[in-house]
Amino acid sequence: MDHEAVQERFSDYLESELPPEEQAEVAAHLESCEACRNELLAFRQTLRSLAQLPPIPAPEGFVGKVQQRINKRSRGRFFRAERLFFRVPFEWISFVIIILMLALYILLMQEVRPLATPPPKKAPVEKKLPR
């Protein structure tokens, strides 16, 4: 194996991806060739430096900004599914509950009043109904 063939295999050699006999050939060449040893050293150093590059922090408030953009683009309809199925019905449900409670309150008041006041003129009215 010549220098070029050896250097061609640096990546595979370092990642142990070569067939065993090629791996041995590369190792043997490196043993006897200082130039390729130096190249491999530089190659390794390059990989190490790349792996050590510090991550760049995401911009501040990134999550919120993406969300804003989505809401803006969709004119607030993006997360619609959730809102339609949960938020809007809640409005209707609470409206219905308030009406029901109001009705219940009126009903109760009507029932309480008859008890507090003397028997009503309800009976005559009811008697009139069959006719």
């Binding site: 760049i56 990134f62 997360f79 959730e82």
Partner: peptide, 21 residues
């Protein structure tokens, strides 16, 4: 897929840094 906002925030938090980098 259900358009869950909380899931969306979690997804952006999880992958935001990698995508941004």
């Amino acid at each position: 897929q259900e358009r869950d906002e909380a899931a969306f925030r979690e997804m952006v938090r999880t992958y935001g840094q990698r995508v941004y980098n």
